[in-house]
Design a binder for these strands. Sequence first.
DNA 1: GATACCAGTATCCAAAAGGATACTACACGC
DNA 2: GCGTGTAGTATCCTTTTGGATACTGGTATC
Lengths: 106, 106
Amino acid sequence: MRSHQGKDHTSEACLQSIAAIRDTLYVLSGKWKLPIIVALSNGPQRFKDLQRSLEEITPKILSKELKELEMNDFVTRTVYATSPVTVEYALTKYSETLDSIIEKMR
Amino acid sequence: MRSHQGKDHTSEACLQSIAAIRDTLYVLSGKWKLPIIVALSNGPQRFKDLQRSLEEITPKILSKELKELEMNDFVTRTVYATSPVTVEYALTKYSETLDSIIEKMR
DNA sequence: GATACCAGTATCCAAAAGGATACTACACGC
DNA sequence: GCGTGTAGTATCCTTTTGGATACTGGTATC
């Protein structure tokens, strides 16, 4: 194979590209993923804090979205054994790869 | 966004950013929008050609997606008064703004 | 006149996404 | 033991999305 840049339109290369793009899209799509990422971009937050930042999100959905973001390595979940246990969610370093994409979209 | 931490977070600016991002996401999301754009990136195609390129897409869905892409100024629809009328779909110049985003995702 | 191609539309249906509401389980203060 | 706060889960429901199947109306071909 030749260079992977630009318009090397072998069908395998194309299919791979589409798969990669679809993966990225999958992570960003949905009503809440981006707002969550934005909310966390100001620093780590706990579950209840996020719920308050994103008014109107129900705990069930917040929970689901956070799990997915965690599985995709965009956020970390840390449990602290404080008085009432607190759980902190934070963006990972890997999530910074989204920044340039998000900036382009703006 | 993360680049201007702390100070620059007027809520209006943030909301605008999110709106812009959501619009972009809206255009790209869904199962077929990207494949259609990729298919058209090799040159204009007619309805039936697209249907064959994107095996398994039903005409109803292809029709709907094309309408949305047209409304968002990413494709043009041109009707030719040939023997059996042919309709050609092509990417617009504006759609090139997606290229850098798509490349980033890859 | 039957068949086939083109560009769709119409009707009905299944799966996925999103959400409202209520609940659990634990700890603290009073 | 009652109310408050934490981090969720469970159940049910609505909306959105995607799709299967069949059909229309036009032209051309056999």
